[in-house]
Design a protein around this nucleic acid. Structure first.
Lengths: 334, 334
DNA sequence: CTGTTAGCGCGTTCAT
DNA sequence: ATGAACGCGCTAACAG
């Protein structure tokens, strides 16, 4: 039924070793023989069995990627970067969605390892002790992508979230704002939620401004929570003149909440955030935000992983990519 | 170095066959023996090798999914549906991005087949003769997801795009609009671009309205082209009173082009489209659109595939899911 | 340049 | 209920 390397060998009148050489581009084959083999392959419709190959060679030319949420623009963009570089180095990708649930993350890490991937890219999400534990049992390299572990023991590629947030708030400060609210992500989330909140805090402190608890709400990174939290701020006796959202999505929600209340952005309230997803320029007014280089994060982490897999020397196990403020139209000068 | 079923067998004082039985939940094992084996597995940190297992059993419990564009909200949503059902039936997913390029689509189909997936889900995109050819060489079931082939020979799950478009335009007609422009996708794209254009045409015809060539522009499904095409319409001597966009993204672009020109939606121009992506309710005014059940398309197609893989009987090889108009705020009554 | 041979780690008869 | 032995399709020495 299925045609094997053996059938091809018989059809071409050579040994299976020769067929294997041809298929694997081994130069040690006479051109004529090579041609015969190719013809036999064509005639029989032979398709190499990657599973058998993987077992024999102990390599699958496949890397596993765990993604927290496939429907999140940010991760999708990072994934593109990963993909492109993977392709370039002839690796295939197994993308596994983990729903942002730790239990499922651990599970997919293990199935990926069972499938004998040559390397693993763990994207986004918080890296707990349990994760580190699971990574430790792996015999292949792993790199964290768009996240880091607290002990900084695992190779990773990310931006400095604290600084990005600091820069965003600082931009507001520069424009004369003093009543700056924040729509944060969960403080449990080490690398994103917590770090961005810390950046907000530091910027205020350095400006000599007191932290007002009423001015900090915790959202869930999504649009709807941006709307809700902004509504809350709008009803405060002393309305903030600007708000910093931890993500673009929440910022866009905030913009709409402001508009729905009959106010204008940025005239009445300024909005800024971090991310620079495509949607940031698909709102009116267009969103001013601190861009994180999503594609590059993916690309660089995949590149790092290829080096690790090939046991090439790497200069840096832990790379921080630069962020950049994109000034659009959602922040007013006071 | 790597611990195999053999090591476990020795450690537990049984044969490898017994270990295999335990790992595969074969009931023919004395509870006590089972316990011993589990302990040995634990002690050694044994992790089954899915590659070896795949070779021996000729099953990988993995299905391949080719996705045209991972950063497209629609496909991401469909993928979630696929994922959930796959999980339910204990299949793993290999997600492969194909960049909407035919050549790459064919390539990933082949690598997926080489990897011995138990089934294949082909998502979105146009299905050409070449695709059908590649599918034919497969010895595993394949289902098309959010697309169909012209000859209707391959199992598929989709909506009726022609009717969805018809309903959208009909909604405009009902509201009294007579000058209805369309921002279409490429007419080369059988299942989406072309079909939706046909629906537009039929609705106009049935209403006794002439098709005005100036009122039809071809976009590329994305926001920017929605902006551009709308600008074109706005400069026409006789501005349309409503526009039907083939996708929500282009519709949102159109809304912003209208607003940027100092006009209002829907007072000056109404906008409607097909898709109902999350962003549709993340604009002002919120977008009226014909919803396609993206999650369900994914879920149903995966369910169909599981049946095919298990050789269970299926009632319908080709399922059309219902669409539904979501009335929000972008269409005015004239 | 080509063929022979021995596994890779595991599922699966077939005995016992 | 358990074990011995074979083979899945291929790569990788080793010979020649």
């Amino acid at each position: 039924m299925t045609v094997t390397i053996y059938d091809v060998a018989r059809e071409a009148g050579v040994s299976m070793a020769t067929v294997s050489r041809v298929v694997n581009n081994n130069p040690n084959v006479k051109p004529q023989t090579r041609k015969k083999v190719f013809e036999a392959i064509e005639r029989l419709g032979y398709r190499p069995n990657a599973v058998a190959r993987g077992l024999a060679s102990k390599k699958t030319t496949t890397v596993g990627v765990v993604i927290p949420d496939i429907s999140n623009q940010i991760f999708a963009e990072v994934a593109r970067g990963i993909e492109d570089i993977a392709n370039m180095y002839h690796y295939n990708i197994i993308l596994c969605n983990a729903d942002k649930r730790k239990e499922k993350e651990i599970r997919v890490i293990n199935t990926l390892l069972e499938k004998q991937v040559d390397g693993l890219l763990f994207m986004g999400g918080t890296v707990t002790e349990e994760h580190v534990q699971a990574f430790r049992t792996a015999s292949v390299p792993i790199v964290l992508c768009a996240t880091t572990d607290e002990q900084a023991t695992i190779p990773s590629v990310d931006i400095n979230h604290e600084e990005a947030a600091y820069d965003a708030v600082h931009t507001l400060l520069e424009s004369g704002h003093k009543q700056i609210a924040m729509i944060s992500g969960t403080l449990q989330d080490q690398s994103n939620g917590y770090a961005r909140y810390q950046g907000y805090k530091r910027a205020l402190e350095e400006a000599g401004l007191a932290l007002n608890e009423e001015y900090v709400r915790i959202g869930n990174y999504r649009y709807e929570s941006g709307v809700d939290m902004m509504k809350y701020f709008l009803e405060l006796p002393e309305r903030p003149s600007a708000v910093f959202a931890a993500t673009d999505e929440m910022a866009i929600g905030a913009i709409h909440a402001i508009q729905d209340a009959g106010l204008k952005v940025p005239e009445d309230v300024s909005v800024i955030s971090v991310d620079n997803i495509r949607m940031a320029s698909m709102v009116r007014p267009q969103l001013t935000t601190v861009a994180q280089p999503m594609y590059d994060i993916g690309a660089v982490s995949m590149r790092l992983l290829t080096k690790l897999m090939k046991k090439e020397p790497v200069e840096q196990n832990r790379v921080i990519l630069p962020h950049e403020i994109i000034r659009r139209a959602s922040v007013a000068q006071l």
